[in-house]
């Protein structure tokens, strides 16, 4: 896949916080054309930390879907990426 609407999956199943969020951020940083990322995670902290990361980085958290034995977190990458205003 290429172009401006790329979509990828980050498989972070079995990984503990903060690794799922780090892997998500790494993928977004490395792929400038990435538009949607789906993070697969089993770590319960991802349910809070993926949306929080989106808020802090100015991306859009689309949804969390329960799948077989894990959760899929869908993120829409908003570029240029800009952190949300500080506290």
């Amino acid at each position: 896949m290429s172009g401006a609407d790329e979509s990828e999956v980050v498989d972070a199943r079995g990984e503990r916080c903060p690794l799922p969020v780090i892997r998500l951020a790494r993928r977004v940083a490395e792929r400038p054309h990435l538009r949607f990322v789906t993070v697969l995670a089993t770590d319960p902290a991802a349910a809070h930390d993926v949306p929080a990361w989106c808020r802090m980085r100015g991306h859009r958290f689309v949804e969390a879907r329960a799948e077989d034995g894990h959760t899929a977190y869908v993120v829409e990458v908003v570029r240029p990426s800009r952190p949300a205003a500080g506290p």
């Binding site: 503990r16 916080c17 319960p44 902290a45 809070h48 930390d49 929080a52």
Partner: peptide, 21 residues
């Protein structure tokens, strides 16, 4: 979560919608 005996992060941070790690 990684500092607790369970795998769950603080329910307080979670309810506030802030970063738990």
């Amino acid at each position: 979560a990684c500092t607790s005996s369970t795998l769950e992060p603080s329910h307080v941070l979670a309810a506030m919608g802030v970063l738990t790690h």
